[in-house]
């Protein structure tokens, strides 16, 4: 983002673009990456409700893949995932592997 000059700024440091933090990438923080194993997913959506970074995409009530632009790899989703028959639908793998 090009830095603006003082005349171009919104008065009083107000940010008029609601939710523009979505443009900021926090995915690079990750040391571990959650992987979704759809075959073990029971669509409980616990991963979605417990995600601190709004990084579990859900459309029409069904989960999709992770938003890796923002996921910081904390692993809460994998830890909370009940999985199917003892098999987790989310597993954490080391980045770069």
């Amino acid at each position: 983002m090009k830095l603006k000059g003082w005349k171009e700024l919104e008065m009083g440091a107000v940010i008029p673009e609601a939710g523009n933090a979505a443009q900021y990438n926090t995915g690079s923080w990750r040391a571990f990456r959650p992987q979704w194993k759809e075959e073990n997913c029971i669509q409980c959506l616990f991963c979605w409700i417990y995600c601190p970074d709004s990084s579990v995409t859900v459309s029409d009530g069904k989960r999709g893949d992770f938003d890796y632009e923002h996921c910081k790899g904390c692993g809460v989703c994998a830890h909370e995932c009940p999985g199917k028959k003892g098999n987790k639908a989310i597993v954490m793998v080391e980045e770069g592997n």
Binding site: K4, G5, W6, K7, L9, G12, V14, I15, A18
Partner: peptide
């Protein structure tokens, strides 16, 4: 309908511009 944010954290990249204004 036009949500704005008042009072963000402004770091050295912008603080002095706001003070100049």
């Amino acid at each position: 309908d036009k949500p704005v944010t008042y009072g963000p954290l402004v770091l050295p990249d912008y603080y002095i511009e706001f003070k100049k204004a």
